[in-house]
């Protein structure tokens, strides 16, 4: 089932064209890696799809509904969820509260202003279950600002999963994580719900080859490749995009 379709998405900052008629589609179960050299417009593309940026032209369709003009939060409520390249977490809250707030929001309970946020035991248990699954059970009560960066990256993933996305956009989920901590991120990504569609920006080809079943390459705001992870390594167009004039 098709969950996300992007049609001819275009955006320019003054004379600089950062997205040139990008089109792609994601179906249930897809694992797509979006790669490209620095400045290719990868994060811009994610910001366009999530609604942080408004396109000059083009259309974004989420599960059959046109969301092109919709606000960020409205898209999230319809199942379009993202993580951030640099962790954006509530650092002064506990790890558990970070995930609990996502669950309360998903359940439409954040307008409740009388009873304690942790009153509903099933929701707290769900938050703890998400954390347990990612090996964060021990730090559930700790302040997010006090835990290791690798663990913070896992909290980002826990929040994203807790929102029950249809389409999940991961912006460099392993950025800033040490080699030693990487296997936990890989395991967490491999264990994402199988029916959701995942689009992942990632530089690390090792990670891409392990997790993605399809790769698209962005260069100077345009899609230059769409195919299998095995084919991308030997594609001359991709090599040219990465190496520029040195590759020719």
């Amino acid at each position: 089932m098709e969950l996300l379709r992007v049609e001819a998405l275009t955006l320019a900052f003054g004379g600089l064209r950062v997205a040139r008629e990008i089109s792609l589609a994601l179906a249930s179960g897809d694992r797509l890696a979006l790669i490209g050299p620095n400045g290719a417009g990868k994060t811009t593309f994610v910001n366009l799809v999530t609604g942080q940026l408004a396109p000059d032209a083009g259309r974004i369709v989420l599960a059959g509904e046109d969301v092109t003009r919709m606000a960020v939060a409205a898209r999230v409520r319809r199942g379009l969820v993202r993580t951030f390249q640099i962790s954006r977490l509530f650092r002064d809250m506990s790890v558990r509260d970070n995930v609990l707030l996502a669950i309360l929001q998903r359940e439409g309970r954040t307008a409740r202003a009388i009873r304690h946020a942790a009153t509903d035991r099933t929701l707290v248990a769900e938050a703890d279950a998400h954390l347990e699954r990612l090996g964060l059970g021990e730090v559930a009560g700790d302040r997010v600002g006090a835990i290791a960066y690798g663990q913070q990256r896992l909290v980002e993933i826990a929040i994203a999963v807790a929102l029950r996305p249809k389409v999940l956009l991961l912006d460099e989920p392993a950025a800033g994580v040490s080699r030693a901590e990487q296997p936990r991120i890989v395991a967490a990504l491999a264990a994402l719900p199988p029916d959701i569609a995942v689009l992942m920006i990632e530089h690390d080809m090792d990670l891409v080859l392990r997790l993605a079943r399809r790769v698209v390459v962005l260069a100077a705001g345009a899609l230059v490749f769409d195919g299998s992870p095995e084919a991308v390594v030997s594609d001359p167009g991709v090599r040219a995009a990465y190496l520029g004039s040195y590759g020719t």
Binding site: A71, A74, V76, L89, I159, L163
Partner: peptide, 18 residues
């Protein structure tokens, strides 16, 4: 809890759908 989230990071709160 939502309000404390807004104080800490408005963009993150928006990304939760609030």
């Amino acid at each position: 809890l939502l309000c404390r989230g807004i104080r800490e990071d408005v963009i993150r709160v928006g990304a939760l759908g609030a």
